[in-house]
């Protein structure tokens, strides 16, 4: 029979664990809220740049009329031989299936483009570690490829305090590689996050730019209904809204930018502005993806910790029951001993 003292000790230990998972859940909920706000605050700028580019498109010839060549190298479509894949995972674990979902999508992507060369740039430690075990590492400058699929870069601890400038630096190098024709296209795989219950994994092409203002999603992986329900429950328990946040005043104004139907003086030729602005469009897409991924990671961790706390509750309940039974059994045994002892006299 189980020793009551052992069971009591286990209950105490599980209670301690529950304390930790509960705390982590609340911390993740707070971080999620902040991440959602950040993702929201980044929208007006992104919208405005997109709108300006769109309005510039109508004023510039994007294609050379004689040759049919696109005037901006980032618009140039080439046959895809070398692909750069930016893989956005988290730096840390204990986030349920968050990291493994992204990695699964990445493997699918790699299988999908199996006859191409793929360079992987890993954002987040989890993705780096996983890909490092699977594929060789090569510096982007090395003259020979280390393999059809190779790891070319890692960006750890970038997501914790995500700054636009840091993303801009990465994209600057990527754009250079694209213009030098070392890579023919750039994709990013991340966990898209609109709200806690509206998420999916996507592979999105960010270069070349085909149409401004339209996201080019090549692969998607939806969450199961069950997963969404779990996320929803955890969010409710932590006081997080399930709805997409309403459009902010800034966002509404950003949509009307630049003001339509006005005859502007252009200080620079529209083509020149367009040329300088287009790389920023790519940067913004990656930045937005990373912001959403951060929110998704916190949401996943919150959900995982909520489940862990619930499981701890179940374990405590069942252990308490076992402990009570053991205690009752011991009492019964003692009574029987006393009674039979008395009867023997």
């Amino acid at each position: 029979m189980a020793n009551i003292r052992d069971i009591r000790r286990r209950i105490r230990s599980v209670k301690n664990t529950r304390q930790i998972t509960k705390a982590m859940k609340m911390v993740s909920a707070a971080k999620l809220r902040r991440a959602q706000e950040r993702a929201l605050a980044a929208r007006p700028y992104s919208l405005m740049i997109t709108n300006v580019l769109r309005s510039l498109v109508s004023r510039t010839d994007l294609v050379n009329e004689q040759t049919g060549e696109p005037l901006h190298p980032l618009l140039a479509q080439r046959p895809e031989k070398n692909i750069l894949l930016v893989l956005v995972t988290g730096d840390r674990g204990l986030a349920g299936a968050f990291n493994s979902n992204v990695l699964k999508a990445a493997l699918k992507f790699i299988a999908f483009f199996k006859d191409k060369n793929i360079d992987i740039a890993a954002v987040g430690r989890k993705g780096r570690d996983f890909m490092r075990r699977r594929y060789p590492f090569a510096t982007p400058e090395s003259p020979t490829r280390a393999g059809e699929v190779q790891l070319v870069g890692e960006h750890l601890n970038l997501l914790g305090k995500l700054e636009y400038e840091a993303v801009a630096e990465i994209v600057e190098r990527v754009v250079q590689a694209y213009m030098d024709e070392r890579i023919d296209s750039v994709y990013v795989i991340y966990n898209e996050f609109k709200s806690v219950i509206s998420q999916r994994l996507i592979a999105q092409r960010i270069l070349p730019v085909q149409e401004i203002g339209r996201r080019e999603v090549v692969l998607t992986e939806e969450f199961t209904l069950e997963e969404r329900e779990r996320m929803g429950e955890a969010a409710k328990g932590a006081g997080i809204s399930l709805k997409e946040p309403p459009e902010s005043e800034e966002e509404r104004r950003a949509k009307e930018f630049p003001a339509p139907g006005i005859d502007y003086i252009y200080e620079q030729p529209p083509a020149e502005i367009f040329r300088d602005m287009l790389p920023r469009y790519a940067t913004l897409q990656l930045f937005q993806g990373m912001l959403e991924s951060v929110a998704a990671e916190h949401a996943a961790r919150m959900t995982a910790m909520d489940s862990a706390s619930n499981n701890a509750n179940d374990v405590i309940d069942s252990l308490t029951l076992t402990a009570n039974r053991a205690r009752q059994a011991a009492i019964t045994k003692e009574i029987i001993e006393i009674v039979s002892g008395a009867a023997a006299l």
Partner: peptide, 24 residues
């Protein structure tokens, strides 16, 4: 407007900005 936030929203009397082709 910066990529991550709205930095300034004010009513002002005058603005000087560093245009690419000179100050405005």
């Amino acid at each position: 407007v910066a990529p991550d936030k709205l930095l300034v929203r004010e009513q002002v009397d005058q603005v000087q900005i560093p245009g690419k082709r000179g100050e405005l």
